[in-house]
């Protein structure tokens, strides 16, 4: 295989892995923001919590990695319901400024509590042996863990697409995104719909956070570190669209990866330049409706 083809394959595959982490973490944010219109800056904090729960479950309770992923999502899902009921429901109709302030405040509280419980030092999440190896494809080795992340990301995309299109819940969510007042008039209980969607969204964030530990590490600061990138993904994709978020994750993941591989001194310049270009031409994002 020629070196440049080799490099191109590396870029594409590695970019795909990174993109799927971005997708898992951001899709919940896109749907909740599209549905409820809340600028939720605490989404990264829920991802961070997911990572910590997974860490506790594996290293302190001794459970295997896969159940830990599920438990992390479920725990954060359960925890998010009271948070949504007590805090978020009060700010749905408020100006976006107050939403930002409340969710930044919530992020700071969650970060401080996590620091209090686990300390500020980084923690790790050991992987099982079967995720540690490499698989050989087309004469080239690919890390199993990356492939695993890609598998989860793609499955998630398909399930979410089908779920939104084929299920009653999906239909209700789409109706409420399009026209909340009309949906309510048609007898949809938007309050519970919001709670449910929010819980599912944060559970996905938690899953993404737990998956990301072995790629970018974990400290309480994770809540803020990746927040801006997540906002970039959802604004490029368009609010409330699963496909948009998926495509934007792919675009940003690939550009970031290619930029870092080919021009490592460029830093984060490329992705932000890409975001600016897309938004200047499509302010509502690639798949968003203006």
């Amino acid at each position: 295989m020629s070196p440049s083809l080799h490099a191109a394959l590396s870029i594409l595959f590695d970019g795909l892995g990174y993109a799927m982490i971005l997708f898992t973490m951001s899709v919940g944010l896109s749907v909740t923001m599209g549905l409820m219109g809340v600028v939720n800056l605490a989404h990264g904090a829920f991802a961070m919590l997911g990572g910590y729960v997974a860490m506790v479950v594996t290293t302190r309770l001794g459970l295997p990695f896969l159940p830990a992923l599920a438990l992390a999502s479920l725990t954060v899902l359960a925890a998010s319901v009271p948070v949504e009921r007590t805090l978020y429901q009060r700010i749905y109709r408020r100006p976006e400024l107050q939403q930002m302030l409340l969710t930044i405040g919530l992020t700071m509280i969650l970060m401080a509590l996590t620091t209090f419980a686990f300390g500020p030092a980084p923690v790790s999440l050991p992987l099982p042996d079967f995720l540690n190896g490499q698989i050989i494809l087309a004469g080239r080795g690919f890390p199993v863990y990356r492939a695993f992340i890609v598998l989860i990301g793609v499955t998630l995309f398909i399930v979410l697409r089908l779920g939104l299109e084929r299920t009653m819940l999906g239909a209700k969510i789409r109706a409420a995104v399009d026209n909340p007042a009309m949906a309510e008039a048609a007898g949809i209980d938007t309050r519970w719909l919001f709670t449910l969607t929010f819980a599912l969204g944060t559970a996905l964030a938690a899953l993404g956070g737990a998956l990301a530990v072995n790629v970018v590490g974990l400290t309480p600061r994770f809540a803020l570190e990746y927040l801006v990138v997540l906002l970039a993904v959802i604004s490029m994709g368009g609010l409330g669209t699963v496909t948009g978020t998926f495509v934007a994750s792919l675009v940003i993941g690939t550009i970031e990866n290619a930029g870092r591989y080919l021009f490592p001194a460029g830093g984060a310049f490329f992705i932000y330049a890409a975001v600016v270009l897309v938004l200047l031409y499509r302010p509502a994002g690639l798949y968003g409706r203006s």
Binding site: V39, L231, S235, G267, Y272, V276, P283
Partner: peptide, 24 residues
């Protein structure tokens, strides 16, 4: 010319690009 999330993101992106330039 832009509003809402697009404006937020554009302003974040531009200041981030400046931040990157200051580092580079």
């Amino acid at each position: 010319r832009y509003r809402h999330l697009a404006l937020l993101m554009l302003t974040i992106a531009i200041s981030t690009i400046l931040y990157e330039l200051a580092n580079t």
